[in-house]
């Protein structure tokens, strides 16, 4: 199964874009693990380096 996620409509230099660019790969990777192995990934939000989320 191929899942494609598109998240658009950001302003130039958007900090939200920086944040979601770090967040989505972690979320979708964990979703894949959960579906295939039954175990989600334990990724600390602080490890994503997103401003205001650490």
């Amino acid at each position: 199964m191929k899942l494609t996620l598109t998240h658009e409509g950001f302003a130039e230099g958007s900090k939200l874009l920086d944040g979601i660019s770090e967040g989505w790969p972690a979320i979708l990777s964990s979703l894949k693990s959960l579906l295939e192995s039954g175990n989600a990934l334990a990724i600390p939000v602080s490890a994503l380096g997103v401003e205001g989320m650490s």
Binding site: P25, S29, L41, I43
Partner: peptide, 14 residues
Amino acid sequence: NTFKPMTAYTIYIA
């Protein structure tokens, strides 16, 4: 300055 990233892909693996 000569090579620019044009495609990047990040994946998390247990």
